[in-house]
Simulated scan of single mutants.
Amino acid sequence: MGQIMKGKPVADKITEELINEVEELKGKGVNPKLSIVRVGARPDDLAYEKGAISRCKKIGIESEVIELPLEISQEDFISELIKLNEDAKVHGILIFRPLPKHLDEEVIKYQIAPEKDIDCLSPVNEGKLYEGDDSGFPPCTPTAVMEMLKFYDVKLKGKDATVIGASNVVGKPAALMLLNERATISVCHSKTKNTAKVASGADILVVAVGRANFVKENFVKDGAVVIDVGINVVDGKLCGDVDFEGVKEKTSMITPVPGGVGSVTTSILAKHVIKACKLQNNL
């Protein structure tokens, strides 16, 4: 059976480093602060919010939640966002997505200050990701994927990597980040003719499709590294996009769900708040 790539040691290592960075910042009179913008009260937003606030508290980052009513108008939403843009005490802004249908993300993404946009909503940060410009903020979840690969010493240069899923939130940025590390990339999506065939040639397989236990044994090459980004609920239990029990024997390494990528994401969020804080204070 392949090595289980647990997220906790990765998150703990990042957290330890960030605690020291925050202490240094506070010694200079700088207090990093995160503002979370939530419209309504979706259970998955509340769960992530709880984890993010807990992680920030552990590290020493101040956090606040701007809770907005579900029926808020776009004009009022943008007004709240501009207040955060202009508040010098706020260094990072996280907007929970997807937003309700009456709020147009295509308009809102141009309103968030790019230097405070710690989860890559702004086209400025999307462009920096495309360019491989480290001064931007890539999305937290694919960044957590890359941190896990780095922590477990998975070599990427020249390797064949397949990403299943092509969303702007995980799939596309994960593919770009793997490409920036000089892996050879394939991306599978809903119109891919034979996803299992494409995936079965991959040394590294990243799965972010949002379908429980979608990836079976025939998708996985012997000795592959499998990163499962999916979080699904089946019969009251959390599971990923990969059939863990059916696949694990073929892999060299595999992430579990829960306890894998998801547990690293809030540490990346905190890391981005501190990076934003340093950039805004010219440190």
Score class of each variant (00 low, 15 high):
S263D: 14
A224H: 05
K193R: 13
K58N: 09
L129S: 02
P32H: 06
L94F: 13
E21S: 12
G230E: 06
S122M: 07
N281E: 12
L129W: 00
K278I: 15
P114R: 00
V107E: 08
H272Y: 12
D235Y: 09
S167G: 14
I231A: 09
V226C: 08
K128N: 02
H189N: 14
A52C: 15
G165M: 06
I95H: 02
E21N: 12
V65R: 03
S54Q: 11
L283C: 10
L99N: 01
Y152F: 09
S35Y: 00
T184R: 05
K8I: 12
K193P: 13
K33D: 00
I66N: 07
V30F: 09
A88L: 12
K216Q: 10
L279P: 00
T143M: 09
P43D: 13
D87F: 08
A47W: 02
G127S: 11
D45K: 01
L70E: 14
V247K: 02
K13V: 07
G40W: 14
K172R: 12
V107S: 05
A199M: 14
L84W: 10
K89I: 09
P114H: 00
R38M: 15
V206S: 10
E115G: 00
N194K: 12
G240R: 03
G165R: 01
D203Q: 11
G236P: 14
E16C: 06
P43M: 07
G27F: 04
H189A: 06
D153P: 02
A183N: 13
K248Y: 03
D153Y: 03
K271R: 15
V170F: 08
K221C: 01
G60Y: 08
V10C: 08
E217I: 07
G171V: 11
F214H: 06
